[in-house]
Design a protein around this nucleic acid. Structure first.
Lengths: 348, 348
DNA sequence: CGCGCCCGAGTGACCGGTCACATAGCCGCA
DNA sequence: TGCGGCTATGTGACCGGTCACTCGGGCGCG
């Protein structure tokens, strides 16, 4: 009968089995499953019935081998446990699944940068489409090393002017605007200036958040304190902030993300400073716990899932120009909570 | 020359090109790339040189089509932004990459349970190996619906006695012990009893954390308050706890995870209760921000990455009995911080 | 010295799709 | 009525590996 049970017990049914069942040629079956138009309705229905009856499922490997593009992509990211990366991944997966693409994940080491060979090995086949979540240095580095023949889209902190990164499609959130929002909010509360505790920069360029912060400072004619470099985690925020919060002239701190802000708030408490009366703290991302911290964190909500969906959309269009244009992401939104408050001057 | 550049510009080099270059047959090349023993050293070296020279990379699709098992697996999980699931995924990916398996991710909707057909569609090919992160109902549901012929390993909250879930290999952390640890700690501080704010249960059975909590309560002869059902997020913890913390006889609350605990702590503050003097709160997981909350959260650290590695190891052995046994996970470890404190009775 | 065996290597079919091309039937139109 | 062209379908090769065989030659052994 041609459909002998294989080792796992499941009978493997091929298009030729379906063809025999429907009384047509295997090619006609191929046309039906690919939605080709030149098939008579009656024939199409017969084939579809046979497919249902036999429980036929096309074999991806065979299809790919025969030259059809595989509907799959690989996401290269450096740390899936960080909120931004995890949410972006979710967005990619969601959009990809809707377009019936399979999503593979490959996690980059935060410290050991892979070389070209390793990167190629992670990609399974040459030409495998890739989305790089390049918020940090390992991601940007990987983006740089990706072979020229791979279709690549990057989620970046900001569009880079430096080659060859800029030659590939990119998506980003308006971090500059987000930072400016938050900074203006703090200045509007009466703070003389705002200190900025930055995330590790992904490139040599000035980060967009830093830029937005400077934009707002300059627009207000406020002093520009030096940027403090931190990390991604609460711990690094805590460590970096201990010095900062000991300085009573620092009255408002903008943090690279909400996790860092949590660390900063702790350092502030330990230094005997009271938030927000005595010190204002704001973050970025609006992680789920932000609203429940003590005090609840003022932050800028960033649409990472939308960013992920956009990345997939861009990649899809790269592979198939007929694919629909991706929906735009939400604009960054300042969420004012309890961790920022008015400043009435040192004398108060 | 047989290696005409394809559309993307990359010349496709096959096993036969390598064979020609090395002056051997294509089968010998196949033997070399599969590490087959019956190849003379001189021949092997010649072939390897040809592979390097030509930059040959085996074609996965062809290999799979020809009957070789694909080194890939799919992770089915319901929410990659939750710490436990994200960390488990990381562990799986890490171990899988070390064994050169590709990892695909498919995210289950928290509310809409997929049917068999949808699940099959997510799996690309019949027989695709799967790891299900089944900490919650959608995961357990998916586990139940997976076709019998797919190799499946599940990361579960606890081993289930109910068929057919139990017939598949499973890995779990010792949640019962973890809960007992935390409960004993609280009872040891002088609390008359401990209230438990549970996660949504994944099955009809009594959850292991609930069980461990009851174990400790019973061993101490403490009263057994009813379990309060909550969710996974800070918000659900906050909402569920508002009633609980209004009751002054509640002096210690164990929360299903750290996120929930953060919500509970907020509800407690709003109710005018002071942690830990007035109310003790503990969680599970030890998320990165736990140590930086106000107050720093007492919690039980769980080795989710180890769990993920174990899951992969189990799956690997399922596919290839010669694969090495996975390393054991770390035991749950109680991390005492500031959110739990002694209770001296209502009179104090 | 002759036989059989094993090692190293080669040959051709096959996996399950797709593609390019061939072909039969039907229509309209000159 | 004959012919071109279109539509619906069939035929066979091919993608790049692997598998089951075949085959030749060197060696040990009786």
């Amino acid at each position: 009968m041609g459909t002998a049970p294989d080792a796992s017990g499941a009978p493997t049914v091929t298009i030729r089995d379906v063809a025999r069942e429907a009384g047509v040629s295997h090619q006609t079956v191929s046309r039906v499953i690919n939605g080709h138009s030149a098939v008579a309705d009656a024939t199409r229905h017969r084939v579809e019935a046979a497919i249902d009856l036999l429980g036929f499922r096309p074999n991806h490997a065979a299809r790919e081998l025969a030259g059809k593009a595989a509907r799959s992509l690989t996401v290269l990211t450096s740390d899936t446990s960080l909120y931004g990366a995890a949410s972006t991944l979710r967005g990619i997966e969601e959009a990809a699944r809707a377009a019936s693409f399979a999503v593979a994940v490959s996690v980059l080491d935060r410290h050991a940068h892979p070389d070209r060979a390793e990167l190629r090995a992670r990609l399974a086949r040459p030409g495998e489409p890739v989305v790089v979540i390049a918020f940090d240095a390992p991601g940007v580095h990987a983006l740089r090393l990706l072979p020229a023949d791979t279709p690549v889209v990057a989620a970046v902190e900001h569009p880079s002017g430096s080659e060859p990164v800029s030659s590939r499609p990119q998506a980003w959130l308006d971090d500059r605007l987000a930072a400016a929002h938050a900074t203006r909010h703090l200045l509007g509360l009466g703070h003389r200036t705002v200190h900025y505790l930055a995330l590790p920069s992904s490139t040599a360029d000035v980060a967009q958040r830093t830029q937005g912060w400077l934009d707002a400072l300059r627009a207000a004619g406020a002093p520009e304190p030096p940027v403090v470099e931190g990390g991604w985690t609460p711990r690094t925020g805590y460590l970096a902030a201990r010095e900062l919060v000991a300085d009573r002239s620092v009255t408002a701190v903008l943090c690279g993300n909400d996790d860092v802000a949590a660390g900063v708030m702790r350092a502030a408490r330990e230094a005997g400073r009271h938030i927000p009366d005595d010190l204002s703290v704001a973050g970025f991302d609006d992680v789920p716990v932000a609203a429940f911290l003590a005090p609840a964190l003022t932050t800028v909500r960033l649409d990472f899932e939308g960013l992920g969906r956009t990345c997939f959309g861009l990649l899809h269009r790269l592979l198939d120009p007929a694919a629909p244009a991706p929906d735009p992401c939400d604009e960054p939104a300042l969420i004012v909570r309890e961790s920022t408050g008015p400043w009435h001057g040192a004398g108060e």
